[in-house]
């Protein structure tokens, strides 16, 4: 309807003139809350040695102790401090989550953009992606672990390989939609080189979708790490991660629920923070959404 478009067009006066956190909080509360929560978690993880005791210390006489002043979150079946292990475990979980999300997004972006622009590469790459897509992450991780032994690196590789196809397809579909846009053609007419067109006119359009994707990836990677550690093929059992903490304490859930709940709640909060951030960033990068405000 002509009227609606006309009024939408006359609307925008508010640009990002003011900056700073208060403005971000008001305009994009999701980014503010999600980002703040995630930043807090990262700081707590990095600063763990400053406030928590050694997570590897065993106190065989204090097994499955409830919450106390000495051990804030009680102890697990080997008498280890659950609070210390949760604090140090954040390092592994966040590392796995953020690194695999980043590496997946980067490879997916690379494959997706080239596939969106080059037909020959597209037909080959997308068949390979279809193949990779059909491999379950857990199985691949199990196979890789059986070759090299358990470790964080292997985990990240397995998650990246199996999640890249979805990301690549997502990017490719965005690129295919955008490359025919008149403003992309206009850039070519203006004598822009292909890399510049990709960087300046096509890449930004993939960001909203990638933001959501990377939040999902991050959450899913943390969960996968938890799952693999649960199966015993994640990080070695003595190194704390939220995943293997939940895994090793699950038997004691009826008698020492704190040993499962502490890492479980942290995991849930992290996934929530990442998802909030992803949703918020999607709105932030969508010019149509910002225009409405």
């Amino acid at each position: 309807m002509s009227l609606l478009s006309a009024s939408a067009e006359a609307a925008p006066k508010g640009r990002l003139q003011l900056s700073g956190l208060p403005r971000l909080a008001r305009r994009h509360p999701l980014v503010f809350i999600g980002g703040g929560l995630l930043a807090l978690l990262i700081i707590l993880a990095l600063a763990a040695p400053l406030y928590a005791s050694d997570p590897l210390n065993l106190y065989p006489f204090k097994r499955l102790q409830p919450l106390s002043a000495e051990m804030w979150l009680g102890s697990d079946n080997l008498g280890r401090d659950v609070f210390a292990r949760t604090a140090f475990g954040a390092r592994i979980s966040l590392l796995v989550g953020l690194t695999s999300a980043a590496s997946t997004v980067l490879t997916g972006l690379l494959v997706g953009i080239i596939a969106g622009y080059n037909r020959r590469f597209d037909s080959i790459a997308m068949r390979i992606m279809d193949g990779l897509m059909s491999i379950p992450t857990i199985l691949l991780a199990l196979a890789l672990v059986s070759l090299t032994g358990a470790g964080i690196g292997i985990l990240i590789v397995a998650i990246t390989i199996t999640h890249t196809p979805g990301t690549a397809r997502l990017v490719r579909s965005v690129v295919l939609g955008v490359r025919e846009r008149p403003y992309v053609e206009a850039a070519l007419c203006g004598g822009a080189r292909l890399p510049k067109v990709l960087w300046r006119h096509i890449l930004p359009s993939t960001i909203p979708a990638l933001m959501i994707q990377s939040a999902n990836l991050c959450a899913s990677a943390i969960m996968t790490e938890a799952g693999l550690s649960f199966l015993g093929v994640g990080v070695p059992p003595e190194i704390p991660s939220w995943g293997n903490m939940i895994s090793s304490s699950r038997l004691y859930l009826p008698i020492a629920p704190w040993s499962v709940f502490a890492p479980g709640i942290c995991l849930a909060v992290t996934v929530l923070a990442v998802n909030l951030l992803g949703d918020g960033l999607r709105d932030l990068f969508d010019p149509r959404a910002t225009r409405r405000r």
């Binding site: 309807m1 002509s2 009227l3 478009s5 006309a6 009024s7």
Partner: peptide, 8 residues
């Protein structure tokens, strides 16, 4: 012209 209210 567009926005004059004719469709509305």
């Amino acid at each position: 012209e567009s926005g004059c209210g004719k469709s509305v």
